[in-house]
């Protein structure tokens, strides 16, 4: 059975899946809107948590949070389930498809044969939608792809039970009740999303989270030439670029996606100041792009460009100042 499902490519897997699922159920929420209402934007640099041997860096909130936030704030009811066995997980998925419910899955990308090998690392927070099954083959809508694809039972089972943090454990989620567009209070949902983002970005008292951690990372990078060998420092910097720009961020580590959200929010709430803030965020996004570009230059020199580390640390420090100012402005919208 194949559920008539309209695949649409999006920048980011989780906000993309959220947007595509909602649209299927008659609630047209764009990707930027789901990202902003879901309080998706973030920054954290936690050097003592190593991901694939690299210091953990993220430009977004933790996996699953965007979907649950958007559901809460729009009054959408959903179910999320984890499973202890492959059989139970696949059986429940099959039942959902039989009942005509397209279902979101958290999967590891290492075992997804439809992605080129060059992207296949042990990254377990990818999201996609299953909307059909014929014999042993599932129909998949992966928001980062241009078209829908198919996958065999065995591969999908492996991807759903990939190991390593964050372990999917077959996690499946789907919508059970979706209100009509006229019953949704979008301005209130936008307000809640923005308020939580401001809180997450500016209030953590520890240096690893929020805007402060951008400055923290800047200081770390300044010390790379004295603390790390050139091979390691090159890898660490390269990892930053990948987290920021490789598939799924919409550019500049979600900053452009958030700027697009602010612009849409400005129209919905009829607040021209949000449009100004959108422009401010676009300029911050451009700063991040420049940072990635200059960082790539330092990577290219394989750590020989010692001056370069200071220069990109300076760039990052100025991004820290810009973001700090930005969130002070954003806070004032909903005091």
């Amino acid at each position: 059975m194949i559920i008539p499902f309209q695949h649409q490519s999006q920048a980011h897997c989780e906000s993309g899946v959220t947007s595509n699922l909602f649209r299927h159920h008659g609630l047209p929420i764009s990707e930027p809107l789901s990202f902003g209402i879901g309080s998706g934007i973030f920054f954290a640099h936690i050097p003592f948590i190593k991901v694939n041997g690299m210091p953990g860096t993220t430009y977004r909130v933790y996996p699953g949070k965007i979907f649950s936030n958007v559901c809460d704030r729009l009054g959408v009811k959903s179910r999320s389930e984890k499973f202890s066995t492959v059989e139970a997980a696949m059986k429940k998925l099959d039942q959902n498809i039989e009942n005509g419910i397209p279902s979101g899955l958290q999967v590891g990308v290492f075992y997804l044969p439809f992605l080129p090998e060059v992207f296949r690392f042990h990254f377990n927070a990818h999201n996609l939608i299953v909307f059909g099954k014929e014999k042993n083959t599932y129909s998949i809508s992966d928001p980062v792809l241009e078209n829908s694809v198919t996958i065999e039972y065995e591969d999908l089972a492996k991807a759903r039970f990939a190991k390593g943090y964050p372990e999917p454990k077959g996690r499946m989620y789907y919508l059970t009740h979706v209100p009509a567009m006229k019953d949704v209070n979008l301005p209130l949902a936008i307000q809640k999303g923005i308020k939580q983002t401001c809180f997450f970005m500016t209030s953590p008292p520890i240096k690893w989270f929020g805007v402060n951690s951008i400055d923290f990372l800047s200081k770390q990078i300044r010390n790379y030439p004295t603390k790390l060998d050139s091979r390691k420092s090159t890898l660490y910097l390269g990892n930053l670029i990948r987290m920021q720009e490789e598939i799924g961020t919409g550019g500049a580590g979600f900053r452009f996606l958030y700027a697009a959200f602010l612009q849409e929010a400005s129209q919905i709430t009829n607040n021209p100041y949000l449009k100004e803030l959108s422009e401010e965020m676009t300029r911050i996004g451009d700063q991040w792009r420049n940072f990635a570009y200059q960082t790539a230059r330092v990577c290219k020199s394989r750590g020989n460009d010692v001056m370069g580390f200071g220069e990109i640390a300076d760039l990052l420090h100025s991004i820290y100042l810009s973001e700090k100012q930005f969130y002070n402005h954003l806070k004032k919208v909903y005091p």
Partner: peptide
């Protein structure tokens, strides 16, 4: 590699989706 969706501004400053085949900075890192 699939083309990826980016959010960019048009001439009048409004946001739109577009596609990118990739970027040299990100390619180098990978």
């Amino acid at each position: 590699a699939p083309k990826k969706v980016m959010y960019v501004t048009t001439q009048d400053g409004s946001y739109t989706q577009t596609q990118s085949a990739g970027w040299e900075a990100e390619n180098l890192a990978l």
